[in-house]
């Protein structure tokens, strides 16, 4: 968005720093040092909590109790991971999280794409109203809403059922609708029109022509909504209360509250297990994750 004026003003400043003398060189060296120092410092603060988790998770119980938390383990010990896996019933939790992820993502993608198709392609009375209804819904903080959503979930008999939680997670989704609307607005309508002329139905246009074109948007939804769904613990805790039977990965960590609350060697192992899938996906798909994050941001 920077226009000609700004580049011109930058151009005008050219002559002032033309002379390179020693003072300027020292200044540059100091600034360069400060730059890298600040980056290293921030990086250090960013990794410290996670690194400390790894250090502690790799110690035996005895070593954890007898040494400082930041002392490196004398020998790598992986028993905590097995213990945490077993105590928190992580095998079941991963299975449930996978089921929830598959259904919530598939549902959100279908719902979001269909709704966005209607809103962006058809002029009908109420189009603006529907958009405002969704926009207003996004202003309501989730935690506040759960006070009364809880009583509705109770009436529907959705509490302590995976399907109840899945439907709730699909129903409170606004993010994918907005991503899809944005994407549809960038696809020319002449494409649908020519297909309609050729005798294709609106359903055909949606399923055969537009849906395949939505792949990048679907990728973005999978990343954003996937992270949110995998990490969601507040509603899971509220609506899947029977954790021994219905734990997901995020809520399985609740096992470590209470009597086990100070066995950090095991807790850290549990925490690492829980974020491992996210870490692996992130490392494999870094570019897509970043572009997914920024795709909704305002530019210019």
């Amino acid at each position: 968005m920077a226009d000609k004026n700004t580049s011109a003003s930058v151009l005008g400043m050219g002559d002032t720093s033309m002379s390179v003398n020693t003072a300027a060189r020292t200044k540059r060296a100091i600034l360069g040092f400060l730059k890298y120092f600040s980056l290293v410092f921030c990086g250090f603060l960013a990794v410290l909590p996670v690194v400390s988790c790894f250090i502690t998770a790799l110690k035996t119980k005895e070593e954890y109790q007898s040494t400082n938390v930041m002392t490196l383990p004398s020998k790598l010990y992986f028993g905590n991971f097995a213990d945490a896996w077993e105590k928190a019933n992580m095998g079941m939790a991963f299975l449930h999280s996978l089921i929830v992820l598959v259904f919530v993502l598939a549902g959100s993608i279908m719902i979001g794409a269909m709704l966005a198709y209607c809103l962006s392609r058809f002029k009908f009375p109420g189009n603006g109203l529907v958009r405002s209804l969704f926009l207003f819904a996004s202003l309501l903080p989730g935690v506040a809403m759960q006070v009364s959503v809880y009583s509705i979930m109770q009436k529907l008999g959705f509490i302590n059922h995976l399907y109840g939680y899945i439907i709730l997670m699909m129903g409170t989704d606004v993010i994918s609708i907005y991503i899809f609307i944005q994407f549809f607005e960038n696809i020319s309508t002449s494409l649908d029109e020519s297909a309609i002329m050729d005798g294709c139905s609106y359903f055909g246009v949606f399923f055969k022509i537009l849906l395949p074109l939505l792949k990048p948007a679907i990728m973005t939804v999978i990343i954003l909504k996937g992270v949110n769904t995998y990490n969601e613990y507040y509603m899971a805790n509220l609506y899947l209360q029977d954790k021994s039977r219905l734990g997901v990965v995020a809520t399985s960590l609740y096992t470590f509250t209470g009597p086990m609350g100070n066995q950090y060697n095991m807790i850290c192992a549990g925490v690492i297990i829980s974020f491992m899938p996210a870490l692996i996906v992130f490392l494999l798909f870094q570019k897509q994750v970043y572009s997914g994050m920024t795709s909704g941001a305002v530019k210019g």
């Binding site: 996670v50 988790c53 809520t251 850290c268 974020f275």
Partner: peptide, 20 residues
């Protein structure tokens, strides 16, 4: 990557990490 990664950790895991 190092700066971004915390965003991908679940809230409940962050709770444990910082209690510790």
């Amino acid at each position: 990557a190092v700066m971004f990664f915390p965003y991908l950790i679940s809230g409940i895991a962050i709770g444990f990490i910082f209690k510790f």
